[in-house]
């Protein structure tokens, strides 16, 4: 069984977001890039599955769509423990253009379990995984918070409103994962970082694709009015304000 995780290269979550060129483009100056948090959890779970000798997992691959500048993020994934990496040499347009590039890679090179994060922390589109599944005409399960293997059977936990469902499926399928899939993201150890330098990154040429959407410009949110501070000895006043001023209770 081969597992592949689609990784998005995103700004560190503490990045101060700024725009340039008359608010038409994201300012990447000084930005630290990281593995999209959900992708990192998916990678962690994939490695756990592979390490369990009861599971028939032979390899864990990571793939990203991005220019050479995204390679440090792939190296990070290799240092965490992925066996190999693929990079499609393409400047991501919209989600559809990214999913199309991924689909090309996967059509030519089948995997059993294809994992994506439930969203990418830059454009928050929640789209690439589902699009990829449809492009591959494959089953997909979204909001996945658990994966277990039992021989050929894959048991997937999906979060639903106010509960969980356990789903049985066989490979191949696309899993779109969220919080819960792994407890905490695995951190690269020194040995992993050394080994990652020798692991292969295969660079794939992109296919031609048109975006279905584009961004016409960005705006920053308006700043909020100052917080009204109420004395700790007067909690009742706060509750009254919530009732009479905010009309929220």
């Amino acid at each position: 069984m081969k597992i592949i995780i689609c990784i998005s290269n995103v700004p560190d979550t503490t990045t101060k977001v700024k725009f340039v060129d008359n608010n038409s483009a994201f300012d990447t100056t000084g930005v630290q890039w990281i593995i999209n948090p959900w992708d990192e959890l998916a990678l962690t779970r994939a490695l756990e599955l592979k390490e369990d000798a009861n599971n028939p997992v032979s390899s864990v691959t990571v793939v990203t769509v991005g220019l050479k500048t995204s390679e440090p993020t792939l190296r990070k994934a290799l240092a965490i423990g992925a066996d190999d990496a693929i990079r499609v040499d393409f400047q991501p347009g919209d989600a559809y253009s990214v999913a199309t590039q991924l689909a090309e890679v996967l059509k030519n090179n089948p995997y059993d379990i294809i994992l994506n994060g439930i969203e990418s922390s830059d454009y928050n589109g929640s789209s690439v995984g589902g699009m990829l599944a449809e492009l591959l005409d494959m089953s997909s399960i979204s909001a996945v918070s658990g994966i277990k293997l039992q021989g050929e059977e894959i048991k997937v936990t999906r979060d639903i409103d106010g509960g969980k469902e356990e789903i049985s499926i066989t490979a191949p399928f696309v899993g779109i994962v969220q919080k819960g899939i792994a407890k905490e993201p695995r951190i690269a150890a020194m040995r992993g970082i050394m080994m990652a330098k020798k692991k292969p990154i295969t660079v794939v040429e992109p296919v031609a694709v048109d975006s279905l959407t584009e961004i016409a410009g960005f705006e920053l949110p308006q700043s909020k009015a100052a917080c009204k501070i109420i004395d700790a000895d007067n909690v009742k006043e706060l509750v009254e304000l919530l009732r009479d001023e905010a009309k929220a209770i």
């Binding site: 559809y96 589109g125 690439v128 599944a133 492009l135 909001a143 409103d161």
Partner: peptide, 24 residues
């Protein structure tokens, strides 16, 4: 909806219908 169900279906539908998506 942009809830779990919507997130699961909308992107697939986008490909199926060749329709661009604005989510959330």
């Amino acid at each position: 909806s942009n809830n779990n169900t919507g997130k699961a279906i909308a992107p697939r539908l986008s490909v199926k219908l060749k329709a661009g998506i604005a989510s959330g």
